[in-house]
Amino acid sequence: MPAVPSAPRRTTVEALLTDLNSSPIEIDTWERLEPWAVARATLRGAIAPRTVIVKWVRTHPVETRTEPWRLRTELAALRFLSDDLNLALTPRVIAADLSAGLVVMEDLALRTALDHLLRRDGAAAHADRLAVFARAHGELSAATAGHVDAYYARRTALGPIDPAAGLVGRFARLRDEACGHAAALGAPFTGQAETELGAALAELSDPGPFLALSNGDAETNNLLLNESGLPDARLIDFEFAGYTHALTDAVCLHVPGPAWMSVGDPISTGLADHYRRALACGVPEAEDDRRYGFGLAAACVSWAIVRLQRFALLDTRSPGDDSRPQLVETLEAAARTAETHRALPHLTNWARRTAVLLRRRWPDADLDFTGQAASPPYTARG
Rank of each mutant, 00 (worst) to 15 (best):
R119Y: 01
P2V: 10
D176Q: 13
L357R: 13
P363F: 09
Q372V: 10
G264P: 04
G264T: 02
I25P: 02
Q309W: 09
E63T: 06
E285A: 15
L43I: 03
D315K: 13
A113G: 14
L78M: 07
H147P: 00
N349F: 06
L43M: 07
L85W: 09
D289M: 11
A280S: 14
L71K: 02
T59N: 07
D273M: 11
R353A: 14
N215P: 14
D206A: 14
L108H: 08
W260C: 07
L20V: 09
R92E: 14
R175E: 13
Q326V: 04
A286L: 11
L140Q: 09
S141H: 15
A77K: 09
T51I: 05
V4F: 11
G101K: 00
I236W: 02
A184W: 10
R352G: 12
L213H: 06
L308W: 07
L20P: 07
P188I: 05
G257D: 14
P319S: 06
L71T: 04
L102F: 03
A76M: 04
A233R: 01
A157Q: 07
V328E: 11
G146V: 03
P319G: 09
R79G: 00
G371L: 02
A286S: 12
A157H: 09
A134L: 10
A338G: 10
G282L: 09
S205Y: 02
R291A: 11
A299D: 06
S99F: 02
R72Y: 00
D322N: 09
A7N: 00
T64A: 14
A127I: 13
R135I: 06
N21P: 00
R381L: 15
N226V: 06
R353N: 15
A351Y: 10
Y151K: 06
W30L: 03
H245M: 02
G166D: 05
G371S: 08
L230R: 14
S268T: 15
A365T: 12
A123P: 02
I267M: 10
V104M: 06
P231L: 08
A334P: 13
L140E: 03
R307L: 13
W36P: 00
P160H: 03
I305C: 06
A299L: 10
A280I: 10
T195F: 11
M105S: 05
H147N: 08
L224A: 04
T248D: 04
F240V: 01
P8E: 05
Y378M: 02
A351V: 08
V301Y: 05
A178K: 09
G169D: 04
T90P: 03
L114M: 05
V104N: 06
F369V: 03
S82P: 00
L158K: 07
L89P: 03
G169I: 11
G242E: 05
R65K: 06
V13P: 04
L197G: 05
A334C: 12
A172E: 14
L296H: 09
P91Q: 01
A100Y: 00
P24F: 05
A131S: 15
A335Y: 07
P231H: 12
D162K: 01
P163V: 01
D19K: 10
